[in-house]
């Protein structure tokens, strides 16, 4: 295996984590979503980056 420069990748992981955290907190606080909540939770957790973005665009009810 090769050496990974963590200082280089840290911003990416931090930002990804913020995105996930914001999505999950919002998911808990929101009253209703398009479709069942637990499905969105699974999508957010298991699909990195794209999952939370999909939730923000399609999951939140205006």
């Amino acid at each position: 295996m090769f050496e990974i420069n963590w200082a280089l990748l840290a911003p990416l992981f931090i930002v990804e984590f913020i995105l996930l955290a914001v999505a999950l907190i919002d998911l808990i606080r929101i009253d209703e979503t398009n479709g069942p909540k637990w499905v969105w939770a699974v999508i957010c957790i298991f699909i990195s980056i794209l999952g939370p973005v999909l939730y923000f665009i399609f999951g939140r009810r205006p």
Binding site: L8, L9, V15, L19, A23, P52, V53, R60
Partner: peptide, 24 residues
């Protein structure tokens, strides 16, 4: 209120650095 001010900058940030990191 719709948290766009958080997720849109984050997504563009990821777009900005993704290719450089992959290329490297």
């Amino acid at each position: 209120r719709s948290i766009k001010w958080i997720w849109v900058p984050i997504v563009f940030f990821i777009f900005g650095i993704m290719d450089q990191i992959t290329m490297y």
